[in-house]
């Protein structure tokens, strides 16, 4: 076993693991039946799936060409930005009321993301006319 053979097999196994996780995450994105549960599945694509493919690229470059760790940059960027975008999409789901509305906050009167546009204070009676937004 030379390093070339080990690198070849490691690249192939990393590719297979990564593509399996990509497939699992996307099937979950299509088949799950709730918006918030659908948010859970594609995180596998963003972390393990692409991470394994990038690791395969690193190993391939070290085995057959000029090796470098450049792909770690993409991996780190994806790992850092995935929670932020997931938080934004979850806020969109709450805003569009595609999930259960969260319980009333203890300190404030209402959640900011559930507040209608253009209203400073949430009216107590829904029949209260607003100034429009």
């Amino acid at each position: 076993m030379t390093w070339t053979v080990i690198g070849t097999y490691a690249t192939a196994i990393c590719l297979l693991i990564g593509s399996a996780f990509v497939m699992v995450g996307t099937i979950g994105l299509v088949k799950l039946k709730d918006s918030m549960t659908r948010l859970h599945a594609p995180t596998k694509v963003g972390t393990v799936g692409v991470g394994a493919v990038l690791a395969a690229s690193i190993i391939h470059n070290f085995t057959f060409g000029y090796g470098s760790y450049h792909e770690v940059l993409i991996m780190a960027f994806l790992f850092v930005t995935a929670p932020v975008s997931a938080n934004f999409i979850a806020k969109v789901n709450i805003h569009e009321r595609e999930c259960d509305t969260p319980p009333k906050p203890t300190v404030d009167e209402h959640w900011a993301t559930l507040k209608p546009n253009g209203i400073e204070k949430m009216p107590d009676q829904p029949a209260q006319p607003s100034n429009g937004g």
Partner: peptide, 8 residues
Amino acid sequence: PGSGDRIL
């Protein structure tokens, strides 16, 4: 069905 799903 919703915009959150499309963004995701």
